[in-house]
Computed example of a mutant assay.
Amino acid sequence: MTPFKPKLIVFDLDGTLVDSSPDISNAINLMLSALNQQTYSKQQIRHWMGNGVTMLIKRALTGELNPLTDPDNLQLAKRVFSDFYRQNVCVESQLYAGVKEGLDQLQAAKINLACVTNKPALFTSSLLTEIGIIDYFPFIASGDTYSRMKPDPLPLLEAANFFANETEHALMVGDSINDIRAGKSAGFKTALVPYGYIGKYSCDQLGADYQIDSIAHLSELLSLAY
């Protein structure tokens, strides 16, 4: 493994730092019930996660992994979901093991930390605040912060600009194809956590530069560069 010491590490949120699937699943099923549609198991809804809330809602409305058209009630469903999820954004959600420890280690090493998520800003700040890690991230970009979101590299490039860091000294840490594609397009190194919402892909198919079982293991990865 090639030694690499980044000056900036950008983290995805859902499926990387936080297991938010229980609260998202609950809101999806409340939405479906309100619309008189079939509900699903949390395991099924978790399988549909990883490509943004709009795609998740489309999958829930249609029961299809790759819906070809937008359901007629998509906009109504998005409003209903938002109402339910906003009120219960951090009831059952939990930090993954090693997240707090890993962030503490990186902060102590004076590495710049950012959070870039496709989650709408309405939910991002609430979740980061309620789960207790918002203060680690001087830079936070949500799915509606800029005109484009992951897998587009724009929010990652904005993070690098914010810290005045060159992209070759930056690392994107995530759990999905959107994270890895965004990182590679931005010129970042990429690290994959295999425990999140990887969807239909295998870890090998995503082609990340590194794979780590826990955010706490990032310090071990970075120690290669000292």
Results as ranks from 00 to 15, higher is better:
residue 1 M to C: 02
residue 4 F to Y: 15
residue 5 K to G: 13
residue 17 L to Y: 01
residue 21 S to C: 10
residue 28 I to D: 04
residue 29 N to M: 13
residue 29 N to Q: 15
residue 32 L to H: 09
residue 32 L to P: 00
residue 40 Y to F: 10
residue 42 K to S: 12
residue 43 Q to W: 00
residue 43 Q to R: 07
residue 49 M to V: 10
residue 51 N to I: 12
residue 52 G to A: 11
residue 56 L to H: 02
residue 65 L to S: 13
residue 67 P to F: 08
residue 68 L to V: 14
residue 71 P to S: 14
residue 74 L to R: 05
residue 78 K to M: 15
residue 78 K to V: 12
residue 82 S to G: 04
residue 82 S to T: 10
residue 88 N to I: 00
residue 94 Q to G: 00
residue 99 V to I: 04
residue 105 Q to K: 15
residue 105 Q to T: 13
residue 105 Q to E: 13
residue 109 A to S: 14
residue 110 K to E: 10
residue 110 K to Q: 11
residue 112 N to D: 12
residue 112 N to S: 14
residue 115 C to I: 10
residue 120 P to C: 11
residue 122 L to W: 01
residue 126 S to T: 14
residue 127 L to T: 11
residue 129 T to D: 12
residue 139 F to N: 11
residue 139 F to W: 08
residue 142 S to H: 04
residue 153 P to T: 12
residue 154 L to A: 07
residue 156 L to G: 05
residue 158 E to Y: 06
residue 161 N to L: 14
residue 161 N to K: 15
residue 166 E to F: 00
residue 168 E to C: 05
residue 169 H to I: 02
residue 170 A to R: 01
residue 171 L to T: 12
residue 171 L to S: 13
residue 173 V to R: 00
residue 180 I to Y: 02
residue 184 K to N: 14
residue 188 F to R: 03
residue 188 F to I: 12
residue 189 K to N: 06
residue 194 P to M: 04
residue 195 Y to T: 13
residue 196 G to P: 06
residue 206 L to S: 08
residue 211 Q to M: 15
residue 216 A to D: 12
residue 217 H to S: 15
residue 220 E to K: 12
residue 223 S to N: 11
